[in-house]
Amino acid sequence: MSEPDQINSAIKNRTQNITTEIGNDEVGLIVREVSGELKINIQSRVEARELFRNFKGINSSSLAKPCTFFEYDMGRIFLLGPYEWLISTRNNIDKVKTLFGKKYVGYFSCVDVTDGYTELKLSGNLLDHTLKQSLTYDYFALNLEEETESFRCIQTNFARVPVLFWKTSKLSVNLLVRRSYADYLIEWLSILNSEEKLVVL
């Protein structure tokens, strides 16, 4: 029987380093499962600047900017809604909780949803075509090179599955998808790529 620490992936047929590659670098799409960071859902009606005051390295003015994420010293914080954030961090949940302080106990929720999500990184020359097929959102608008303090993210549907989507570089994007949909999404991407036979000029 497998040891617990070896079954940490939502994607079937995973390789040891939990990388699923479809196609190749030149013509194709590369899908990687990203793991290792905790995903923590935060909700509170406390003013964001005050709630996150102990988080180092963040620009508090960006905390309430819709459709953005920003980095702090231990990870990233995504704004999901007016009173809701998702923290992706290398910290453990207890350490994160202590950052909010005792003062606000009862006035915020802090839920570890790590196992509820699968993070996928998509790259390769078929990326643009794949996104056009899968996403109704204008991902061109995410390409905000002028932004320095916060980056754009969007909650939308990818292949009819709800995802949190953000661009990590010109040729790669990350998706955070509910774990139960991850296999379907991989199936979608596999079929897309296997039938495509596109030559990207």
């Binding site: 909700q43 929720s109 839920v111 949803v113 196992d115 509820g116 139960s180």
Partner: peptide, 9 residues
């Protein structure tokens, strides 16, 4: 505060 944790467990 309500958080869906269906997929987490």
């Amino acid at each position: 505060f309500l958080t869906s944790v269906t997929d987490a467990w």
